[in-house]
Simulated scan of single mutants.
Amino acid sequence: MMSLDDPHAPLLTLLRVGRIFAPEPLEATELLIADGRIAALGRDLEVPVGWPVEVVEARELIAVPAFIDQHVHVTGGGGEGGCGNRCPEITAEEIAAMGIATVVGVLGTDGISRSPADLLAKVRGLRAEGIAAYMYTGSYRVPPPTLTGDLQRDLAWIPEVIGLGELAISDHRSSQPRQDEIERLVSEVRVGAMLAGKRGICHFHVGDGRRGLEPLRRLLAETEIPADQVIPTHVNRHRALLEEAADYALGFEACVDVTAFDEVGEEDISAFEAVSYLLERGVPVEFITMSSDCNGSLPEFDAKGAYLGMRVARNTALIGDWQRLVREQVLPLDQALGLISGHVARVLGLQERKGRLAVGFDADVTLLDGELQPRQTFVAGKRLYASDGSA
Rank of each mutant, 00 (worst) to 15 (best):
G79N: 05
E80L: 10
E80R: 06
G82C: 06
G82M: 08
N85Q: 12
R86I: 14
R86A: 10
C87G: 07
P88K: 06
P88D: 09
I90S: 04
T91S: 15
A92L: 08
A92Y: 09
E94I: 02
I95C: 11
A96N: 03
A97P: 00
A97E: 15
A97F: 07
M98W: 09
M98G: 15
I100N: 04
T102W: 08
V103G: 01
V103Q: 04
V103W: 09
V104H: 06
V104G: 03
G105I: 00
V106T: 02
L107H: 06
G108N: 05
G108R: 05
T109V: 06
D110V: 04
G111Y: 12
G111K: 13
G111P: 06
I112K: 14
R114C: 00
P116V: 05
D118S: 13
D118V: 05
D118Q: 14
L120W: 03
L120R: 14
A121C: 05
A121P: 01
K122S: 01
K122P: 01
K122V: 01
V123W: 03
V123C: 08
V123I: 12
V123N: 03
R124G: 02
R127T: 00
R127K: 15
A128Q: 10
E129A: 14
E129P: 02
G130M: 02
I131S: 03
A133R: 10
A133K: 09
G138D: 04
S139I: 04
Y140H: 13
Y140P: 04
Y140E: 08
R141Y: 11
V142Y: 14
P143L: 14
P143I: 07
P145I: 10
P145F: 13
T148G: 10
G149I: 13
D150P: 07
L151P: 11
